[in-house]
Nucleic acid binder design. Structure first.
Length: 188
DNA sequence: CGGATTTGACCTGCGC
DNA sequence: GCGCAGGTCAAATCCG
């Protein structure tokens, strides 16, 4: 990792491009010339199963090849804490990463999950800082990074790391009544 | 007052 | 070994 995430094939993360927001389910995957578009099931994406299933089923060449060796510190992982209490890194299995390039005036995409910002850092060769977010769900350790392209400030690069182990709150808010209705109707 | 954000310090990996 | 860059922590601060 190093510089700004650019829309080219040098990145080690699959590059998904959305012309606007997740309002359109059609995405492009320039990394793989075999795939010129991809229909995304946003429901499964938001529930976390997309990253577990669909993406891997597509056999994308670079999932999850991010060179970062940073850790995540979710429960059950053997991550070493530094004796000074700061930092919690060690070489570990790299969680799946997906980068979305989104044209938006908003930095933070409303993806249905709740995120807490835990850091912001100036990035080399970029005039815009990178922001670090973590899912606020207590059992979930998904992270995301948000950064604007210096070449095109209207483009926001959102990099998701890891899989949600819980459904999207907004999704459940929306689907909850619907599911109840389906359950009710299915009794007949 | 509690949760979210800000921000400087700290830690690790990597290249030279 | 050293310096740099990226990533994370946690105390301070903000805000509803």
């Amino acid at each position: 990792m190093g510089e700004e995430l650019l829309p080219n094939t040098n990145n080690n993360v699959p590059y998904l491009f959305t012309p606007s927001l997740p309002s359109t389910p059609l995405l492009n995957l320039p990394l793989d010339p075999q795939i010129d578009h991809l229909d995304i099931d946003w429901a499964s994406l938001l529930s976390g199963t997309f990253l577990n299933g669909e993406l891997q089923n597509l056999q994308l060449p670079n999932v999850p090849l991010v060179s970062s060796t940073r850790v995540n510190t979710s429960e059950g992982e053997t991550c070493q804490k530094s004796t000074k209490g700061k930092g919690s890194r060690s070489k570990k299995a790299i969680p799946p990463r997906v980068a979305f390039h989104t044209r938006s005036s908003e930095d933070v995409l409303d993806d249905g999950y709740r995120w807490r910002k835990y850091g912001q850092k100036a990035v080399k060769n970029s005039s815009h800082p990178r922001s670090y977010y973590r899912c606020t769900h207590h059992t979930c350790n998904v992270k995301k990074q948000i950064q604007r392209l210096s070449k095109d400030r209207s483009i926001v690069v959102t990099t998701y790391e890891g899989n949600h182990n819980h459904p999207s709150e907004k999704l459940m808010e929306t689907l909850g009544p619907l599911l109840k209705q389906i359950q009710f109707l299915s009794r007949f």
